[in-house]
């Protein structure tokens, strides 16, 4: 009776047993890679908003300070999304016939909220507070990127925990003088390490061991 399999399949089967290890490793890697990709993290993907508000225009071209709208960024956990009233401060007169702004005027007339789409959506088990970061010299730009060059806002970092820890482990690499927190396009006046170390002492930034405690962010 003839053999069903040729002799060469012996080798083939050994190779495939060996290859399965790599195949499984590849699947694990693929799972991790997809998880870290913008497909999951939403990094760099501009959100479509009910009004196509351009930070590039309002911050970059007009030069309006972040805090004009994000009023509570210096004193609360939440930076604040401005109420329609803040839009109407200017747009009652400027572009007040523009169809682009009809949702704003409608909200103003009816009192219904504009439902903006949240861009930086942290998991609910993470505690984050804007005011402490601003007070300790973390620039807006450090986490939000060049907002003054974003027609539509996208998420600048991946917002993975490792990204948070990059700074919590070595804040001196990222912090800047308080008066430059709201500056876009800040360039340190000297070596960042030296400036960072000096500011870290001056602003009483806690030691890395405390900044990387679990309960610092998961409370």
């Amino acid at each position: 009776m003839a053999q069903i399999f040729h002799r060469s399949t012996n080798t083939l089967s050994r190779v495939s047993v060996f290859g399965a290890v790599f195949f499984i490793a590849f699947l694990l890697w693929l799972f991790d890679a997809v998880n870290r990709s913008p497909y999951i993290t939403q990094q760099g993907i501009a959100r479509v908003q009910p009004v196509q508000f351009s930070h590039q225009h309002h911050v970059g071209a007009i030069g309006i300070d972040c805090r004009y709208c994000h009023t509570s960024v210096e004193k609360a956990a939440f930076a604040n999304i401005p109420p329609t009233k803040t839009c109407m401060n200017c747009h009652a007169q400027i572009w007040n016939q523009s169809p682009e702004l009809e949702p704003v005027r409608e909200s103003w007339r009816t009192g219904r909220s504009i439902e903006w789409v949240k861009v930086y959506d942290l998991p609910d088990y993470v505690y984050f507070n804007h005011s402490i970061h601003v007070a300790k010299g973390v620039g807006c730009e450090t986490c939000h990127g060049r907002i003054d060059r974003m027609p539509l806002v996208s998420q600048h970092p991946s917002l993975e925990m490792s990204w948070c820890l990059d700074c919590h482990r070595a804040p001196e690499k990222y912090i800047r003088p308080r008066e430059d927190v709201f500056t876009m396009g800040y360039v340190p006046a000297g070596r960042q390490e030296e400036i960072g170390e000096k500011l870290k002492a001056e602003y009483h930034i806690r030691p890395t061991r405390e900044l990387t405690d679990c309960w610092t962010c998961h409370r």
Partner: peptide, 22 residues
């Protein structure tokens, strides 16, 4: 909040990469 030259450039050229940090 912004460097005037910076935003002129941004308006003229559209979004660009932020300058390299030292």
């Amino acid at each position: 909040p912004v460097d005037v030259d910076d935003w002129r450039r941004a308006v003229d050229e559209g979004p660009t990469e932020p300058p390299e940090r030292e």
